[in-house]
Nucleic acid binder design. Structure first.
Lengths: 106, 106
DNA sequence: TCAACTAGTTTGTACTACAAACCTGAGGAG
DNA sequence: CTCCTCAGGTTTGTAGTACAAACTAGTTGA
C-alpha cells in the first residue's frame, strides 16, 4: 500500500480534454453560450451537449435556455463550486508537473 | 466547421492521469524501476503494468527486464520520442491554461 | 512441505466519449 | 400553403479502455 499522495489525484470528470477546455474557457468569462463554446473548444455539437449535461449534473456549471431572436440560446456559466474545482485542478496539474524538476538544493 | 485549433488537441494516450504521472516522473530521471514508479505514481501494480505496456507499444518508453538479487526487476526509461511528446503535452496544457487569462491589451 | 512474500501479468466488466442520427422551430422559395 | 434547408441543439449505439480482482512464478523462512 503506497500512500497515493491525495494532493495529486486527478478528477477524471474535469480532466477529460473536452471538459477541461470547456471549464477553462468558462473560467475566464462570466458566461458563454453554446455556439461560442463550440468555437473556442472545437467540440462538435453532440459532444459539447453531452459534456455540458455531465458538468451540469455534477454541479460544476449552471445552464440557462432561452430564445434569442427566435432561436434557441443556451447560456452556460460556472457555479461557485465549478470555479473552485477547475482552479484546484490546474494547481494539481502544476504540482504534478513540478515533480519533474525537483532537483532544487542538496 | 469551427477550426479546432490543432495546437491545443490533447493526446488521450498521454493525458490519462496514470500515464501522465508515469511519463512526468520519468522525464525527471534517466530511468526508474517498477517499484519506484508504483510508489511515486500511487498506481496499483496491475494498472501500472498495463499502462507501461501501452506506453511501450506506443514507443514512448523502453522497458528492460532482468533479475536483481534474484528478484525480477523492470527498468523503464523514456525513449527520445517519449521525452519529446511529454514535453509537448505539458506545453499544450500551458497554452490551454493561458486561454483562461487572455485579457492582455485593448 | 507449505505458507507467505515480492514482483509482476492477465482478464472481465462497467463505464464513457464519440460519431452519427435525430429533433424542432424559423425562414425562404415557388 | 408545401417543401427545403438551416441553426441550434439532443439522443443513441458502439467501440474502446481503465480498473479491480484474480492469477503466475520465483524466493525465503519455519
Amino acid at each position: 500500500m503506497p500512500e497515493p499522495n491525495q494532493e495529486l489525484v486527478l478528477d477524471r470528470l474535469i480532466h477529460e480534454p473536452g471538459r477541461l477546455a470547456i471549464l477553462t474557457v468558462l473560467s475566464s468569462v462570466k458566461s458563454a453560450d453554446f455556439v461560442f463554446l463550440q468555437r473556442t473548444t472545437g467540440l462538435t455539437k453532440g459532444n459539447l451537449s453531452s459534456h455540458l449535461t455531465k458538468l451540469e449534473e455534477a454541479g460544476l456549471v449552471q445552464i440557462e435556455k432561452r430564445f434569442v431572436l427566435k432561436k434557441p440560446n443556451t447560456s452556460v456559466e460556472l457555479t461557485k463550486v465549478g470555479r473552485k474545482r477547475i482552479a484546484e485542478h490546474w494547481s494539481r496539474l502544476d504540482r504534478l508537473k513540478n515533480l519533474a524538476q525537483p532537483h532544487p538544493q542538496e
